[in-house]
Amino acid sequence: MSANARSGSHRLPLWSLFLALLALTAAEVVLYDIWVKHQFIPKYALVILILVFTLPKAAIVMIYFMHLKFEKQIIVVLAIVPFFLATGGVLAILTDTMTLKPQARNQVTAIGSYEVDHGDGDGGGEHGHDDGGDEDDAGYDDAY
């Protein structure tokens, strides 16, 4: 493999990019493995650290492999806008989820384990479902 690859008339440091992706992936896995064994930091800190390793990998693929660095502005807009819309959508829903009180979150759990808790027949299933819906509504009422 040649040392450099070309995107249009632009040459990419292909080996450097490959090694960077490899190193970031290895760092992620090693960090995760150490955390599972020792849990030396809180879980939220692990998530932040993994994001620190993951987002540069995603950026490398978008900017270099997908040629965004060398594309016209309209292509960059086409590529970036969905990502902002997507991120904004998730954050908006996430904010709503985080406003739920623990009681309401537990009720979501109950709905999630519906088959296990209430799935004892047709009649029971229907009853259980109705209960879950009512509880969910109550949870939202409490939350707001």
Binding site: L85, G89, V90, I93, L94, T97, R105, V108
Partner: peptide
């Protein structure tokens, strides 16, 4: 995003 968003929201909704 729909899939990832649903995953994140469901996970935050679970204890």
């Amino acid at each position: 995003t729909g899939l990832i968003g649903a995953y994140i929201v469901l996970r935050f909704g679970q204890d």
